[in-house]
């Protein structure tokens, strides 16, 4: 590489770093910025740390709305989410970064903003068994978008088994719960086991649920109902 080309390469790198799409025209995509972020973790991305009890306390003090703790296990990413809307039996919770989790009696029925989101589910039978803390088999459908933006429905058969009961304390919730497990398979190689802690009213207060290929397992903990 000659001096001249080295100079030019340097200039180019500088250009890319500083001018990766500046201006007031949103329609021009920050392609290079995104590529840079995906390779090097973004411009000043903070290190992810678990949510502390202190942060939980602050969050519960700051609002009187229901609050959950949501963790994507594979990404070790954790956030608190506050209920922002109710539609029938569904509750929408949002994180400070505008990601959303939808719960029905504590069961995650949708996510938004995680990438590879769970778009919707057919959960009536599964939820019925969980709420009744009874054993049995249930069909359960999850819907996702493919990278082509086509809806793909995964149809599972889940075997639900109740386990032991115990008392728990999380956030401001003090209750006794029964451990429930749902082992689900689509018969074509996709299988997962979800677990739930269900209280006396049939509400899932804590769960570990599989949310698709992209997200994997996530946990949800209700801190205030």
């Amino acid at each position: 590489m000659t001096f001249k080309t080295t100079c030019r390469a340097g200039l180019l790198a500088g250009l890319i770093a500083t001018l990766a799409a500046c201006g007031n025209d949103d329609r021009r995509d920050p392609l290079l910025e995104s590529a840079y972020e995906s390779l090097f973790g973004g411009f000043g991305a903070e290190e992810q740390t678990p949510i502390t009890d202190q942060q939980v306390g602050q969050a519960l003090a700051a609002t009187d709305r229901p609050v959950i703790r949501f963790t994507v296990l594979d990404r070790e990413a954790e956030a608190l989410a506050v209920e922002i809307e109710r539609n029938g039996a569904h509750r929408t919770y949002a994180t400070a970064d505008r990601q959303a989790i939808v719960l029905r009696n504590g069961l995650i029925t949708a996510t938004r903003g995680l990438g590879g989101d769970l778009m919707s589910v057919e959960e009536d039978r599964l939820l019925g068994l969980l709420r009744g803390r009874s054993a049995g088999q249930a069909t359960y459908v999850q819907r996702y978008l493919t990278p082509e933006d086509v809806t793909e429905a995964l149809s599972f058969t889940c075997t639900v088994t109740p386990g032991q009961s115990s008392d728990i304390a999380q956030g401001v919730i003090r209750t006794s719960v029964t451990v429930m497990q749902a082992a689900c398979s689509d018969g074509q190689g996709t299988a997962f086991t979800d677990s739930y802690l269900v209280d006396g009213s049939g509400e899932i207060v804590t769960s570990k649920q599989w949310l698709g290929e992209t997200t994997g397992y996530a946990t949800m903990q209700q801190l205030r109902r």
Binding site: Q48, V72, Q99, G115, G116
Partner: peptide
């Protein structure tokens, strides 16, 4: 979390 999750998903995309 958005950024981190976003990046993880982006990395998934990059892969």
């Amino acid at each position: 979390m958005a950024r981190r999750a976003g990046i993880a998903a982006l990395l998934a995309g990059a892969t």
